[in-house]
Amino acid sequence: MTVVRRQPSRHDLPWSYHAAIGAIRPVLQAVTRRDWAGGEHLPAEGGFIVAANHYSEVDPVTLAHFLVDHGHPPFFLAKSSLFEVPVLGAALNHLQQVPVYRASSRAGDALVAAREAVQGGRCIAIMPEGTLTRDPDLWPMRAKPGVGRLALSSGAPVVPVAQWGAQRILGRYARRPGNLFARPVQQVLAGPAVDLSDLRDRPDDPRAHTEATTRIMAAITAQLAILRGEQPPERPHEHQEGGG
C-alpha cells in the first residue's frame, strides 16, 4: 500500500467542503487500502484539469480522496440534474461544484464557469465520458469533446488520471456495496500532462477539441492499462444516447 501523508489544501474552501472532507475521508481510510502513484505530475502552482475514467458511482469520491490528500481538493463538473435533487443540489452549490447543462441553451455555462475556476488556480476534475462507461469490461469509452474544448480555451494543463478498484466498493449500477470488510484496494495513477501544444492556437476549432479529447482519453486508457496489467481494446466503445 502506498502511504501518502495528507498535504494541506492549496485553495480556500467553503466550510461545507471542509466538513465533507472531515466526514468522508475517515470512512474511506477505514474501508479501503490505497495504491497511489503519480502525484508528482500534479502541478505545484496554478490551475489545472484532471481527467479521469468513470466506471462506478463512487469513483468521483475515490478520485477526490487522492486529490485532497495531495493538496488539490477538486471542483467537479457534474450533471445539472444532480443540482435539482433536494438537499444534494444545495450541497453541491455550497461546495462550489460546477453544473453541466447538456443539450440546452445553457450548455456553454459550464465551460465559462470551469474556465474561470481553472484560470483562478483551482483543480477542475472531469470524467470526460459524461456517464458510467458502457464498455463491458469497464475500459474508457469514447468521450464527448467538452474536455478538449475546456483545455484549449483555458490553456490549462490536463493531467490524465486512471483509477481502478471503486467497482469493488460499488459495482456499476449496483444498489448495494461490496464486501467492505475486505478493504478493497483503490488504485490511482496520475500521468504527465497531455501534450496539446500543437493545438493551443486553435481554441475555437471543433476539430481541435475532438483531437485534444482523443489524446486525453488515450492517455487515461494507457494509465489504466498499467494499473490493470491488461491490453485495452483497439478502439474505445461507442455509446449511443438512449442505447445500452
Rank of each mutant, 00 (worst) to 15 (best):
residue 83 F to Q: 07
residue 23 A to I: 13
residue 130 G to A: 03
residue 149 R to W: 02
residue 116 E to D: 09
residue 154 S to W: 02
residue 48 F to L: 11
residue 30 A to V: 03
residue 42 L to D: 03
residue 51 A to D: 02
residue 150 L to Q: 09
residue 23 A to C: 14
residue 124 I to Y: 05
residue 44 A to R: 15
residue 75 F to V: 07
residue 145 P to N: 04
residue 46 G to Q: 12
residue 121 G to D: 11
residue 74 P to Y: 12
residue 31 V to H: 06
residue 152 L to R: 04
residue 117 A to M: 13
residue 66 F to M: 07
residue 139 W to L: 09
residue 162 A to G: 14
residue 56 S to P: 08
residue 71 G to Y: 15
residue 111 L to N: 11
residue 105 S to K: 12
residue 34 R to G: 00
residue 32 T to K: 03
residue 47 G to M: 07
residue 157 P to R: 04
residue 152 L to N: 06
residue 54 H to T: 03
residue 64 A to T: 14
residue 54 H to C: 06
residue 88 L to Q: 06
residue 108 G to R: 10
residue 44 A to L: 12
residue 37 A to W: 05
residue 92 L to Y: 08
residue 164 W to K: 01
residue 60 P to A: 15
residue 62 T to E: 14
residue 49 I to C: 03
residue 137 D to P: 09
residue 127 M to Q: 14
residue 145 P to Q: 04
residue 60 P to D: 14
residue 32 T to H: 10
residue 61 V to C: 12
residue 83 F to I: 08
residue 58 V to Q: 13
residue 107 A to M: 07
residue 90 A to D: 06
residue 157 P to D: 06
residue 45 E to R: 14
residue 156 A to L: 05
residue 22 G to M: 09
residue 27 V to M: 05
residue 94 H to D: 12
residue 81 S to A: 13
residue 114 A to C: 02
residue 20 A to K: 03
residue 27 V to P: 01
residue 53 N to L: 06
residue 54 H to V: 04
residue 45 E to Y: 05
residue 148 G to R: 02
residue 164 W to I: 01
residue 45 E to H: 13
residue 31 V to N: 06
residue 159 V to R: 02
residue 135 D to I: 05
residue 159 V to K: 05
residue 87 V to M: 10
residue 20 A to C: 15
residue 142 R to V: 13
residue 95 L to H: 09
residue 125 A to L: 14
residue 108 G to A: 13
residue 150 L to I: 13
residue 31 V to M: 07
residue 81 S to D: 14
residue 99 P to M: 13
residue 53 N to C: 04
residue 85 V to Y: 03
residue 162 A to F: 12
residue 38 G to L: 02
residue 53 N to Q: 09
residue 72 H to Q: 11
residue 88 L to F: 05
residue 57 E to Q: 14
residue 141 M to A: 15
residue 24 I to D: 09
residue 51 A to H: 01
